[in-house]
Design a protein around this nucleic acid. Structure first.
Length: 429
RNA sequence: GGGGGGUUUCCCGAGCGGUCAAAGGGGACAGACUGUAAAUCUGUUGGCAUUGCCUUCACAGGUUCGAAUCCUGUACCCCCCA
């Protein structure tokens, strides 16, 4: 069994643990069963979920048994931790669909098949749905002093705000999460819960409950939240969250997100999210200091994470797309490859006759049809300023006309305006 | 109810009756530079076309050879006095 504690320490992944000094040795004593919870708020995981998933993965690699708990029940309530306002409740059907989709994605991170330390996926809806309110109050609620609950940061924070209240439902959230821990202890011998630092209150609530109900010694550990140096959350772009599902965020965009991580944040990302060994990460730190322009850290980060989430195939497409998007001429590609690479790019269907008509298709019209220019004048302007490209080759002649010879593949032509505005024209016959 | 001011091209904002498609700034787009960063610099920013033409300055009319600029009415906004 590897020394997971030491591993997590140097990566900076330990924010707080219970048991203080003894925690590390307790962990390394024997294989433990550890759990982390995930809110099924959407039908895909996003970048924000990667940190706890990687944590579980590290535990598994070190010989421990991970449990991923999907909050089918708690998702119906909404965790007030770190939230400034009351949460919207999700419908049962929506939750069920989300849970199913999330399960599949987790397989990329955790091995569910291994004999001893095989991961387990549980849904707290399964044991909560038939728990009657009266029973819950008698058996669980009885163990929670309200004054202690009120002192938790997650609750206190919300009570102190004038503009956002806290419903009884959300107030009760921690009881559910606390009971989850006890339940997992009963059923799976789970003795450790991990989560982000905002989960500390919920985790200790579970530990307290375990002691009261089972006289059990449970443990908790939190990791820092993955934030950027400017304080904002990792994994957000102007266009929204960065998702793990290729339908929502293409492998190319996913790759690009990491390539563009700022110098100040990339070291943290490498430590928190990748499994690169210490020596390599420190070498990258050095490279970043001495030859920042090479951006080896970002490349390595993007490569590592894209490979993990989208597989070798996805990584390849993302890298090929990157090459092309940033200058490479487009040759020797067929429709299928182009479609994979330009999956995110808008496209327009045009009749093939347009190419063979006498005079061909003017570059100006092509830019307008592709939606890259809003008028012919605009298109001319773009061309004369040197901002128009066909298949990544600059077009300087405003009067250029395009024919079948300008197709990048069987039926596709790649137009570009400026550095990164791409559009495809498809000429199906 | 009375008096005054306003409504301009994506936004803010200038605009003598002709030389106004309309200053300036912002934004946006393009180019150079660069680390797919930031900053900076340059150019462009109503439409169509080879000089040129067409449509815009709240809306509808009018005066003029000619109006975003003058007059009348309409709508909305702001301020002051009751």
């Amino acid at each position: 069994m590897n020394d997971i504690f030491a591993e997590l320490s140097w990566r900076g992944l330990i924010n707080q643990t219970t048991g203080d000094d003894s925690f590390g040795s307790w962990l390394n004593e024997q294989p433990r069963t550890v759990y982390a919870g995930f809110d099924p708020t959407a039908e895909s995981l996003h970048v924000g979920h990667m940190l706890p998933l990687m944590l579980l993965r590290r535990f598994q690699a070190a010989g421990h048994k991970p449990i991923a708990l999907v909050g089918g029940a708690t998702g119906m309530i909404g965790d007030p931790s770190g939230k400034s306002a009351e949460r919207n409740l999700l419908s049962v059907e929506q939750l069920r669909a989300n849970v199913d989709a999330i399960k599949i994605q987790m397989r990329q991170f955790l091995d569910f098949d291994e004999a001893g330390s095989g991961a387990v996926l549980v849904n707290n809806f399964d044991w909560m749905q038939n728990f009657s309110y009266l029973d819950f109050l008698r058996d669980i609620g009885k163990n929670f002093p309200v004054n202690v609950m009120m002192a938790k940061d997650s609750v206190k924070g919300r009570l102190e705000r004038d503009d956002a209240g806290l419903s009884y439902t959300e107030f009760s959230y921690m009881l559910l999460q606390a009971y989850d821990f006890v339940h997992l202890f009963d059923k799976h011998g789970c003795t450790l819960q991990i989560g982000g630092s905002d989960q500390w209150g919920n985790i200790t609530a579970g530990i307290d409950l375990g002691r009261r109900m089972r006289s059990a010694q449970l443990f908790g550990m939190t990791c820092p939240l993955l934030t950027k140096s400017d304080g904002t959350k990792m994994g957000k772009t102007e266009s929204g969250a960065v998702w793990l599902s290729p339908e929502r965020t293409s492998p190319y965009k996913f790759y690009q997100y990491w390539i563009n991580v700022g110098d100040d944040d990339v070291g943290k990302c490498l430590r928190f999210l990748t499994e690169l060994p210490r020596e390599e990460i420190e070498a990258l730190d050095k490279s970043r200091e001495e030859e920042a322009h090479k951006r080896e850290s970002q490349k390595r980060l993007a490569e590592s994470l894209t490979g993990l989430v989208h597989g070798d195939q996805g990584l390849m497409v993302a890298q090929r797309a990157t090459e092309i998007f940033f200058g490479g001429e487009i040759d020797d590609l067929n429709d299928q490859q182009l479609n994979a690479i330009f999956a995110d790019v808008p496209s327009q269907q045009l009749s093939r006759d347009r190419l063979s008509a006498e005079g061909g298709l003017s570059i100006v019209d092509a830019l307008v049809e592709a939606g890259l220019s809003k008028s012919k004048g605009d298109a001319r302007r773009t061309i004369s300023q040197g901002g128009a490209y066909v298949n990544n080759r600059r077009v300087e002649d405003t009067d250029k006309s395009l024919s079948a010879e300008d197709l990048a593949s069987e039926t596709v032509m790649v137009l570009r305006s400026g550095k990164k505005n791409y559009a495809l024209l498809r000429f199906a016959s």
